[in-house]
């Protein structure tokens, strides 16, 4: 009690002192901060400039950004989407197809050099195949519908007309929006299924040095997955897959959390850039997994490969399995 009664007047005095100080300082601060009075013409220029930069005003109309008179980023968004993203995106997609076609014409299918033994060994479990094909099917559908949104007007527009294209894309948008989260789900499953086999191994350095024998045709021993497959796993499936699915998931809920146009603009651009790179890489994976390598498609279809195939493409894995180890690095 004694201590309190001593402290109380002291605190009161301090407060009084602070208030007096503030009162004294206020006119000084005002004098320092007050801008020199501008002629009316200059003031007008100032506030129109602010409006042009997207500074919001007040509107009685309720809604996201209803007080913003000028959407300052709109023009840049239009220029980027209709310009570089369509131009370079389309170019790298077509270039990749061209490179693969050229590669196939020159090198042809990568055949087994020894006859198959007829003895099969398990390469993929049914869970792994479920995760793979779930991702694959949703990915292809997402890719087709996504490309239709970016390039449909240029490619299909002249054929179908505005309403025909609109009908098709209305369905495409539904598929794209509702399948997106399913794709994300499968991508996470896929990452979980194959993560442990995609860590760095010593043999990967040799694989990189010889570029996987892609051009020399030489044989490079590798674990369950070679460095090319690991690159696809980390860069394609994990980084780009999660990035594209993640940005898409936010775009899926335009009404949530008062999303601003600026956020949506940025996300649409990032989503498109990521998706185009992912699609370009996927062409390589799809080629290698189907017509590029003999027996590759069968391994993911049945889960089993011939021992010759295992020895030729993944020798270290083959040796491990034969030695009774798990085959995982």
């Amino acid at each position: 009690m004694g201590a309190n009664s001593l402290k109380r007047p002291a605190a009161w005095l301090m407060r009084l002192f602070a208030v007096l100080l503030a009162l004294l300082a206020a006119p000084l601060a005002l004098a320092a901060d007050a801008p020199a009075a501008k002629p009316p013409g200059d003031q007008v220029a100032d506030y129109w400039r602010e409006v042009r930069q997207g500074v919001p005003g007040l509107s009685q109309v309720q809604g996201a950004e209803s007080g913003v008179l000028i959407n300052a980023e709109g023009q840049a968004w239009r220029d980027l989407r209709n310009g570089p993203i369509k131009k370079y995106g389309g170019t790298i997609l077509l270039a990749m197809i061209g490179v693969i076609a050229l590669f196939y014409l020159i090198k042809g299918q990568m055949k087994l050099s020894a006859p198959p033994t007829g003895r099969k060994m398990q390469r993929f479990t049914s869970f792994e195949r479920f995760a793979h094909w779930g991702t694959a099917v949703t990915f292809v559908l997402m890719g087709i519908t996504g490309l239709a949104i970016l390039f449909g007007r240029t490619v299909l527009g002249p054929l179908l007309g505005s309403e025909g294209l609109g009908g098709l894309l209305a369905l495409g948008k539904l598929v794209h929006n509702y399948l997106g989260p399913v794709f994300l789900f499968f991508t996470i499953l896929l990452i979980g299924a194959f993560l442990r086999d995609n860590v760095w191994q010593k043999c990967d350095a040799a694989w990189i040095a010889k570029a996987g024998g892609l051009f020399s045709g030489g044989h490079v021993p590798s674990g369950r997955f070679n460095f090319g497959e690991k690159t696809w796993f980390w860069l394609g499936v994990t980084f780009l897959g999660l990035f594209v699915a993640g940005t898409g998931l936010i775009l899926n809920f335009p009404a949530l959390m008062d999303r601003t146009r600026e956020l949506m603009q940025d996300l649409v651009l990032l989503h498109a850039i990521g998706a185009v790179i992912l699609l370009t890489l996927s062409f390589g994976h799809i080629y290698m997994g189907t017509i590029g390598v003999e027996g590759a498609l069968d391994s993911m279809k049945s889960g089993e490969v011939d021992e010759t195939w295992a020895k030729e493409h993944h020798e270290i894995w083959y040796d491990d399995v034969k030695a009774g180890k798990s085959g995982h690095p």
């Binding site: 209803s66 000028i70 959407n71 709109g74 294209l165 609109g166 894309l169 209305a170 948008k173 949506m264």
Partner: peptide, 18 residues
């Protein structure tokens, strides 16, 4: 043309006036 519109929102992103 509302029969063609798919409700993607891109026009809103590009429009200067909201």
């Amino acid at each position: 043309n509302k029969d063609a519109c798919i409700g993607c929102g891109y026009c809103l992103f590009a429009c200067p006036f909201g």
